[in-house]
Design a protein around this nucleic acid. Structure first.
Length: 422
RNA sequence: GGAGGGGUGGCAGAGUGGUUGAUCGCACCGGUCUUGAAAACCGGAAUGUCCGCAAGGGCAUCGUGGGUUCAAAUCCCACCCCCUCCGCCA
């Protein structure tokens, strides 16, 4: 959410942001509603002022004068009630529009319709070349008894899976490595709730738009698709001590996504599943663009370091405007090389929001002048499993179908090579 | 699941229909005193929003949303959250 004052003063920026993000949001409509809102609000407030004034007189005035005031105020009350009703209706529309106002993409974000227009900014490592016929992760992991997709579907339904043996060990190893590296960077480890209340999702910007992609419980709670939701809501409605900024969290949580819009996509294997696990980097910092940008680069660098430590070839793309979420100012994706598909596939997504989320969450700090300001928020993937296993096992496979364990993971996995029947 | 008690400003905690945006305390800021600090004393200070160049003023905010009333922190209803005891349970 943006400040209505800012919106009013920068209508062309908002219109441009809406166009760039390929949204059909119309600022003019919001401004028209806001004009009506301000008009009615003025009327309501002056009626209330009249009421308050009379109220003060009634206590100190004689019986006769009091009776006259009561009659007059009865009329004011009736008028006020119809005006308040009108205001309430306008506010409904206003709220509906306000949560649809897009945040403004950074100048450096390329314009485009969808992910095909994302701009590659960097590649790291060479695409793995095999002198044998390579297998895809489904075949490899099934062969090595690391995963069970058939029974996964039997038990959990479409996109269900079990990770077993080295598949499970590798997952724990990836998490542990990620946690260790983030600890070194000063991130506090947090295990965040995935079962969250609606407010947390409204605050982070996943609702009201993303209702379709979320699982909902019979108690009207939701299953979050990322630890970002719980971590951001952690300080909802708080004024955080500015001395504590930046707050850096390494959040672990299971993640649930209905993938409502992706029914035909990636139906095989571990690329797109309904339930997965993720370690997320999250930062709350002072409300300063340069600081947000610096932390954004830092989050990317940390995630890259993780991928480099794992030795997985990847590239970095700057997401184009059409591929940005409503609240995102800029987003980088890291895409890992997947030999079986001969493609880079997204494993990390790192973005910043300015105060878009914290305004909704009412998350503030007191700046040096003592003024309350909304903090800036950023978040980015550190390690998303099992998707990351896809490129890991495919890139590290050997001719005999075994998988080398990346050096950095060996101490956690307890083995150098994953072979059948282990 | 059953029974009871609560949600008030940064914190703590009064306040049961009318100058109450809200006593007192702690913390905070300024001043006096002091070589400096502490203590003591004096004073200041909530947040949002609207009008205004400003000074200043209006409105809203006592968990949330409704209702009663000329008037609600205070009365009524619904919901949310917290605490205590019992039951169940990883």
């Amino acid at each position: 959410m943006l400040d209505i004052k800012f919106i009013r003063e920068n209508q062309s920026l908002i219109a441009e942001a809406s166009r760039k993000k390929r949204l059909d949001f119309k600022v003019e409509e919001l401004i028209a509603i806001d004009d009506r809102r301000l008009g009615i609000l003025g009327e309501v407030e002056s009626l209330r002022a009249k009421q308050n004034e009379a109220s003060a007189q009634i206590v100190s005035v004689g019986a006769e004068e009091k009776a006259a005031l009561l009659v007059e105020m009865k009329n004011v009350k009736d008028l006020l009630q119809t005006k308040e009703e009108e205001l309430k209706e306008i506010m409904k529309d206003w709220q509906k529009q306000m949560v649809q106002v897009p945040n403004i993409p950074d100048m450096s974000v390329p314009e485009g319709d969808d992910d095909s227009a994302n701009a590659e900014s960097k590649t790291w490592g060479d695409k793995t070349v095999f002198d044998f016929t390579a297998r895809d992760h489904v075949e490899l992991m099934t062969m090595l008894d690391m995963a069970d997709f058939e029974r996964g579907t039997k038990v959990a339904g479409f996109r269900g899976y079990f990770l077993k043996n080295a598949g499970a060990r590798l997952s724990f190893a990836l998490w542990q490595l990620a946690f260790d590296m983030l600890q070194d960077e000063g991130f506090a480890p947090v295990m965040a709730p995935s079962l969250v209340r609606r407010e947390a999702l409204l605050g982070t910007g996943y609702l009201p738009q993303g209702e379709e992609d979320l699982y909902k419980t019979q108690d009207a709670d939701y299953l979050a698709g990322t630890a970002e939701v719980g971590l951001m809501a952690l300080h909802m409605d708080e004024i955080v001590d500015s001395a504590k900024l930046p707050i850096k969290y390494a959040g672990f949580s299971p993640c649930f996504r209905r993938e409502a819009g992706s029914h035909g996509k990636d139906t095989k294997g571990l690329i797109r599943v309904h339930e997965f696990f993720k370690i997320e980097q999250l930062i709350l910092c002072e409300a300063n663009h340069a600081e947000s940008v610096a932390w954004h680069e830092k989050l990317l660098a940390t995630a890259e370091k993780y991928m480099q430590t794992l030795g997985i070839p990847y590239r970095v793309v700057v997401n184009c405007t059409g591929d940005l979420g409503l609240g995102q100012v800029k987003k980088y994706d890291i895409e890992a090389w997947v030999p079986g598909e001969q493609k880079y596939r997204e494993t990390h997504s790192i973005s910043y929001f300015h105060d878009f989320q914290t305004r909704r969450l009412n998350l503030k700090y007191r700046d040096a002048e003592g003024k309350l300001r909304f903090v800036h928020s950023l978040n980015g993937t550190m390690s998303a499993t099992p998707r990351l296993l896809v490129s890991l096992v495919e890139n590290y496979q050997q001719a005999d179908g075994s998988i080398k364990v990346p050096l950095a993971l060996q101490k956690y996995v307890g083995q150098e090579i994953i072979r059948a029947n282990q």
